[in-house]
Design a protein around this nucleic acid. Structure first.
Lengths: 237, 237
DNA sequence: AAAGTGCATAGACATATGTCATGTCCCCAG
DNA sequence: CTGGGGACATGACATATGTCTATGCACTTT
């Protein structure tokens, strides 16, 4: 049950669990599923039956307008929980789709509810994760609503760098992440063509080097200034 | 303690509370404060000491870029809770400002934490409120990122109409709400000038009538279609 | 009544971003 | 090794949105 172990670890990072709480989670039913890139993990308006723990690979959540344009709402990285709202809502309010081959542990919401009723520390941890995610939503709203294309792209790259590498920063802040320019655009409220222009400009200024899915941010401090990036919204200290 | 009564009522709408849970909340320390329009209720990066219950008047939360442009993140209506994230974060991740004369009941986060540890139904209710708010964040992200100005304005007006009047719809879906065009722009990632253009266009099409702070939406169905508005994200059924 | 303030309106113009078409490269299926 | 599809790159052009300026109206303050 790799998913359950990951969940316990994330919860313990927020607040220590007592023996019973830990045991309760570890005994849960957890189905591990694997999805090819592009496949739907959960769909908007489905019944909100499961929450998930990302085990390996990447996913993202999104919504669409009736005319079909897509807005990516969040990126889901290994170790992160997804669709926690399902514990509280009856219908999914967004879809979740695999970005790469993606394996996820699914736990039934009713099981989670039971654990949370019996163990307040679990309830507290789950809600804290929801609050962390909310902080990111808020920063994204600011990014999409109030920054120009170059700043938006830079900001997103900074966020991914921090979220992927945590504190363990490589010298040139490099990371592998398989987003296409179209997906970057969908996350930022831009078109792929314009993302291309913005990235070209960042490249010309020496702020970004890209080799396929490998991104390098050789001038971290300069990029943070340009993109108005400050990682406080990710650390929540 | 009007704030506490309101909080109990909102929680009970989510899930019935038992006698002890209700009594616990009603016995809480709750400071009622009143703010003139424009005053800050809570500031980003402040210590996250309090959550609030909006008693009367309106408020909004927002973030700013370093260059000073402001993004309004949410509107806070009477009866709604605000800054619930403070229970889980140590620092505020956005500011909250009064939109009109605004009175709010403030409860210390530690008190809330205590109630939630003792009464799982309270924890469940608070988290459900967080999840409701998240649903709105997601729809706003879609609105800001993927709809044009006219759709955005229409969508926001539809949302306010539904949230203010609930199901009790007046014939012409009219409501009083004191947003200036600049504030509408800040909520939608637009400039005031462009909001003006969008509203003019809605007016010309007979979809909007405005008299000071009174908005009328005489062609509700047509406006919903134009603005791609669907209230599911507000009802969470 | 006069002056001042805040907001809505409007037009001219600037610019950021979108749209579309094309070409290249590279990887993978055959 | 070969053909085709996907992603990236780039340029010409269209358009949505921003910027700036000016005006008028309703209110408040004096």
């Amino acid at each position: 049950m790799p998913g359950l172990k990951i969940l316990v670890d994330s919860l313990e990072q927020i607040e220590p669990l007592n023996q019973e709480a830990r045991a309760a989670i570890l005994s849960a039913d957890c189905v591990v599923r694997s999805y090819a890139a592009g496949r739907y993990v959960l769909r908007e308006n489905d019944r909100a039956d499961f929450i998930g723990i990302a085990i390996e690979g990447f996913a993202f959540s999104h919504k669409q307008t009736s005319s079909g344009s897509r807005q990516i709402l969040s990126l889901i990285l290994p170790g992160e929980a997804l669709a926690l709202e399902n514990i509280y809502l009856n219908q999914l309010d967004c879809s979740i789709q695999a970005l790469t081959t993606f394996s996820v542990g699914l736990i039934h919401r009713d099981a989670m509810k039971r654990f949370m009723m019996l163990h307040p520390t679990i309830a507290n941890g789950i809600s804290t994760m929801l609050a962390y995610r909310s902080s990111i939503y808020k920063e994204w709203m600011l990014n999409i609503g109030r920054r120009n294309a170059k700043e938006r792209v830079g900001h997103l790259l900074c966020e991914i760098a921090v979220r992927l590498t945590g504190g363990n920063t490589t010298a040139d802040r490099s990371f592998k992440f398989p987003l296409t320019q179209e997906q970057i655009g969908d996350a930022l409220g831009l078109t792929a063509a314009h993302v291309n222009r913005a990235m070209k400009s960042l490249r010309n200024e020496g702020l970004l080097i890209r080799e396929k899915t490998l991104f390098r941010l050789p001038e971290w401090d300069a990029l943070c200034v340009l993109a108005d990036f400050n990682d406080e919204y990710l650390t929540n200290e």
